[in-house]
Design a protein around this nucleic acid. Structure first.
Length: 302
DNA sequence: AAATTTTCCAACCGCATTGTT
DNA sequence: TAACAATGCGGTTGGAAAATT
């Protein structure tokens, strides 16, 4: 049975211990973590073995730097799920909850703080008007970045030769080009955003290139469907089945469904029923809810 | 080059949840 | 159904490595 606690080893694992654990699990798998250490010839508790396997030895682990896409996914999922690292990890293949938690605490959290965003609530610290719409913080960060970009770009535009280049670029219709390079549309969305933040919900559709709508009960819109039970139930049945989470997610989705952006630049459609059922929650990430300015390059610089 | 500070991450701890008898 | 054991999760910490002074 259990070894006296005093005889159990603690602290960093040695290569020899790793070899023993790996070899044992390769051969026998892991069924009973409590008895495993003794069988594998290790002076560790089962808990320690389990952790070592899950966080380090597992062969399917993807180690190394997080990609920009992974980082986006983490931020977005954190806005949905909070500090539920295991739930977040479930949507990032080959990453562990511990790794994600560390990455959040050491990098993302600090960056959000620097941007004036509360990493817990995802809300800008300085603006109490923003109510329960957690993801708005992400929009705010997008807005700040967009504004910074516009300021930068406006200086470039002053040059006639640059103006010419920009015009031709806009006509290229490049598949890979970022849609928000169209500045007037970008500004319209920023205006719309501002009106949400300040509680002024009147956005004239006539003044916008695409439908930009705010308000409640937009149930005929795709995004509103994100609040349906189907979405929540699917999610929970796969992962943990906790009813309170279904309720919580639905509540959040209900809030979010009151804000529906359909626009060629900021395209938030929410997780549609089909996609949640077919591919999982992670599908809502990156391309649907992007941070406009950040690129692979400046991600590397961070 | 040395001292100090900061960053990063593996590992631990305690509590919650789930499974078993 | 209660009691206990096993497992899982998230917060925290210690120390090594990197960066800064």
């Amino acid at each position: 049975m259990a070894r006296p606690a005093g005889l159990l080893k603690k602290g960093p694992w040695t290569p020899d211990e790793d070899r023993k654990l790996f070899a044992y699990i390769q051969q026998h798998g892991f069924r009973n973590w409590r008895t495993l250490p003794e069988k594998a010839g290790l002076q560790r508790c089962g808990k320690s073995c389990r952790l070592r396997w899950i966080n380090y030895l597992r062969p399917d682990l993807k180690r190394g730097k997080f990609s920009l896409q992974e980082e986006h996914t983490i931020i977005q999922l954190h806005a949905f799920l909070g500090n539920r690292w295991s739930a977040i990890a479930a949507h990032l293949p080959n990453r562990t909850d511990n790794e994600i938690k560390n990455y959040w605490n050491t990098r993302i959290k600090k960056r959000l703080n620097r941007m004036g965003i509360d990493p817990t609530t995802h809300k800008p610290r300085s603006n109490p008007l923003i109510g329960t719409l957690n993801h708005m913080a992400q929009w705010e960060s997008a807005r700040l970045e967009a504004e910074a970009r516009l300021v930068k770009d406006s200086k470039i535009i002053l040059s006639p030769s640059n103006q010419k280049n920009i015009n031709s670029n806009n006509n290229n219709n490049n598949k890979g080009s970022r849609p928000w390079t169209n500045k007037s549309e970008c500004l319209d969305v920023l205006k719309a955003w501002k009106s949400v933040v300040t509680g002024m919900f009147a956005v004239s559709a006539a003044n916008n290139p695409g439908p930009v709508m705010f308000g409640s009960n937009q149930s005929s819109w795709g995004a509103a469907e994100a609040g349906s039970n189907i979405v929540g139930e699917e999610l929970m049945s796969e992962d943990d089945g906790s009813k309170y989470k279904v309720a919580e997610l639905n509540e959040r989705f209900d809030n979010w469904s009151s804000m529906c952006l359909h626009d060629s630049m900021y395209h938030w459609t929410g997780p549609t029923t089909e996609r949640c059922m077919g591919e999982g929650f992670s599908d809502i990430s990156v391309h649907d809810f992007d941070y406009p300015i950040q690129t692979e390059q400046n991600h590397q610089d961070l």
